[in-house]
């Protein structure tokens, strides 16, 4: 009986090396979850594979084939620069999420390569904001090279230095210098350096690339703050929320979900959650401060302000 077990072990390791060479997700011998069949008494065990991090959101994990890849390249895209708040937020959340999932003694950091034109248009990263968002400041390195090839060199050097768990490469739109070959090369580099490369395309169209998956991030309304006794307070801006449209998943079996998934990011516990349909909100209707007769005349404007519905003619914003 021992030889059989030995042969079985050898076969398994052979299969493992082949799978790793082809970059396919590794399947242990555990039974495949039969999610379609809801038979009672049947234990559905989530697919456990070591280079995937589950988001904990049923729909998203299933769509991405088990969750986030631990090493390899993925892309997060925002349709227009106005939504860069949401895309940057999502990228940073994913980075923070991965950082908390890596073994502590590895002590690897996050490397963010900023893109100068995006920074001019939508603002620089703010240390206090990053800390509020859940990132550890002493494990974050930031660079803002002037040219794209410098950025690529930095990203590649970061990957080969094995000092980073997540590298976020910010790209403005669809630059020609970043075509399929560069994408391919970065993807391979990321895969064999056990590091997740997040391509953050700000205000760009959908473009093919050798990414494992590609998401389009767009803003979603935030959750509500909770009072000490648990009731949410209406009108307050709680934890950040993003709505994702999954555009491409390279190795997944199941079909892509049609409509977007909404995620809430709990910066304190560094967890993604589904936005719970809130309990009846407890909030005193914020009455206007001066119970006097409506808004006083604005000092520098012409006549009484019309009802808010109509579009007012404003002089040009400076």
């Amino acid at each position: 009986m021992a030889e059989a077990a030995l042969a079985q072990g050898k076969l398994l390791s052979l299969r493992e090396t082949i799978a790793r060479m082809e970059g396919k997700p590794l399947h242990r011998l555990e039974p495949v979850p039969d999610s379609a069949v809801g038979r009672p008494g049947d234990v559905s065990v989530a697919v456990v594979n070591h280079d995937r991090i589950a988001f904990g959101i049923e729909a998203l994990d299933a769509a991405l084939g088990g969750g986030l890849v631990r090493s390899g390249m993925a892309e997060i895209r925002s349709g227009s620069l106005r939504d860069s708040g949401a895309s940057t937020g999502l990228a940073l959340s994913v980075a923070a999420f991965v950082m908390t999932r890596q073994e502590p003694q590895q002590g690897r950091a996050v490397f963010f390569v900023g893109e100068p034109s995006v920074c001019r248009e939508t603002g620089e990263l703010l240390a206090e904001g990053l800390e509020d968002h859940g990132l550890a400041l002493d494990r974050l390195v930031y660079a803002r090279p002037r040219k794209l090839d410098e950025a690529l060199w930095l990203a590649e050097a970061a990957l080969s230095s094995r000092a980073f768990a997540v590298v976020v490469l910010e790209i403005a739109g669809n630059p020609a210098r970043f075509g399929l070959s560069e994408s391919r090369r970065l993807s391979l580099k990321a895969r064999d350096s056990d590091c997740l490369l997040l391509l953050l395309r700000q205000g760009g169209r959908e473009e093919a690339g050798s990414t494992i998956f590609r998401l389009e991030a767009s803003p979603a309304s935030s959750g509500l703050h909770l009072l000490p006794d648990g009731t949410p307070l209406r009108g307050t801006i709680g934890s950040a929320a993003f709505s994702l449209a999954i555009e491409k998943v390279s190795a997944s079996a199941s079909p892509l979900p049609s409509q977007g998934i909404v995620l809430e990011w709990n910066a304190h516990e560094r967890l993604f959650t589904c936005p719970s349909d809130a309990l009846p909100a407890f909030c005193p209707e914020p009455r206007p401060a001066n119970p006097g007769a409506g808004l006083p005349l604005p000092a520098d404007r012409s006549d009484r302000p019309q009802t808010l519905g109509a579009v007012l003619a404003f002089d040009r914003a400076s």
Binding site: L227, P228, L233, F282
Partner: peptide, 10 residues
């Protein structure tokens, strides 16, 4: 606003 709401609740 949150502090006021919490105080009123307490």
């Amino acid at each position: 606003r949150r502090v006021f709401a919490a105080s009123m609740a307490a």
